[in-house]
Design a protein around this nucleic acid. Structure first.
Length: 204
DNA sequence: AAACAGATCAACCGCGCTTCA
DNA sequence: TTGAAGCGCGGTTGATCTGTT
């Protein structure tokens, strides 16, 4: 299937961003028939998408309990804690953050947290280098805990207090929460009903 | 105002695990 | 027991957005 083309009859497969029409078809189909058996679902719904693509779209975006935007400090700390426990087991981590998807957490980790780890690492390496030079002069036995090779897990050099975030949980650069076009921060959830009423308003 | 660079995130890809005939 | 099919996961890519010069 994934390892080889699973369409025996050369069905054209769409790729790229999902259209609202496709979203509607998928939502409607799942609302009526439930999720699961994604390959046959895709065919039965008349979507020119792979089952995989449908599953991903549903789980990461269309599911009514998906929470979007504004990862709180509590959630962030939880992500950090769980990542230090389990590593890149994003789906496992996501299970402990209701409404968050593995993809979202993975992206968040890579774009935000990992960046800060690198920065902290560089800073620490720099200061470690500085202090090591001095230490060498003084024949001190002070071993730096950020010697790179001795650190198996980047979390060990990661120090949450060094975040550039303020205590209000806002972000220094223009990140998503304030820029979401429609919802206020309280409205991180949206339901099928809301989606459908949006469709009615749009006349679609 | 335009060009460029960096950040973000949706979506795809490939691999490995599970299930079932 | 084995091979095919389905599914889930983690890594990666590319389009878009935002900030800076």
């Amino acid at each position: 299937m994934d390892k080889k083309p699973c369409n025996s009859h050369d069905v054209e497969v769409r790729k790229g961003p999902w259209t609202m029409e496709e979203d509607l078809i998928l939502i409607n189909y799942i609302a009526n028939h439930g999720e699961g058996v994604w390959n046959s679902l895709a065919k039965a719904a008349g979507l020119k998408r792979t089952g995989k693509s449908c599953r991903l779209r549903w789980l990461n975006y269309l599911r009514p309990d998906v929470r979007r935007g504004n990862i709180s400090q509590e959630e962030e700390l939880l992500i950090i804690e769980l990542h230090s426990k389990w590593g890149n087991r994003w789906s496992k981590i996501a299970k402990h953050l209701p409404g968050r998807t593995d993809n979202e957490i993975k992206n968040y980790w890579r774009t935000r947290i990992q960046k800060h780890i690198k920065q902290a690492d560089q800073t620490n390496n720099y200061s470690a280098h500085q202090s090591n030079s001095k230490a060498a002069d003084h024949q001190q036995a002070s071993t730096s805990h950020v010697s790179g090779s001795s650190v198996a897990d980047p979390m060990e050099v990661y120090s949450p207090p060094s975040y550039p975030y303020n205590t209000m949980g806002t972000f220094p650069v223009g990140t998503f929460p304030e820029q979401l076009p429609m919802e206020s921060n309280e409205q991180n959830y949206w339901s099928l009903e809301e989606f459908w009423s949006m469709q009615l308003l749009n006349g679609d």
